[in-house]
C-alpha cells in the first residue's frame, strides 16, 4: 500500500502507523459525560467502504494524517494533515 503524505510524498505503508476511525470526536472538557466518552473510546461504525481514518507518519514527518480509504479495495481517495482537518472541524466547517 502506498500513502501520499502531504509533506513527504508517496511512501510505503510500512512507514506509517495506524490508529483508526477519524469520525469520533473526543468529548472534551469537564462537562463531558461518561457515556459519550465510552462511545468515543469504544464504538466504531467500521464500514465496508469509504473510511476516514487516522495514520501517523512515524518514520517520516511525524504528522498525523486523515486518510480517506475504501476498506473493500484499499483505494485511497484523499490524504490530509490531521491538524488541518481538526482545525476546520473546530471552525465548524464540513470536514
Amino acid at each position: 500500500m502506498r500513502i501520499r503524505c502531504p509533506h513527504c510524498g508517496e511512501r510505503d505503508n510500512g512507514e506509517f502507523s495506524y490508529l483508526g476511525d477519524a469520525a469520533p470526536v473526543r468529548p472534551d472538557g469537564p462537562n463531558a459525560s461518561a457515556e459519550a466518552m465510552h462511545d468515543y473510546v469504544y464504538l466504531r461504525d467500521n464500514p465496508a467502504g469509504l473510511h476516514r481514518e487516522l495514520w501517523y507518519h512515524a518514520a517520516g514527518c511525524r504528522s498525523w494524517l486523515v486518510v480517506t480509504r475504501d476498506t473493500r479495495s484499499h483505494e485511497i481517495h484523499e490524504v490530509a494533515p490531521a491538524r488541518d482537518v481538526a482545525l476546520s472541524r473546530r471552525r465548524g466547517e464540513v470536514a
Binding site: D28, L54, Y56, A58, W64, P81, R83, A86
Partner: peptide
C-alpha cells in the same frame, strides 16, 4: 518512548490543534 511520542503528537495535532 515511541508510543508516548506518538500519543502526544496525536493530542497536539488532532485533539487540540488550537
Amino acid at each position: 518512548a515511541a508510543r508516548v511520542m506518538q500519543h502526544l503528537e496525536f493530542c497536539r495535532q488532532w485533539l487540540w490543534p488550537e
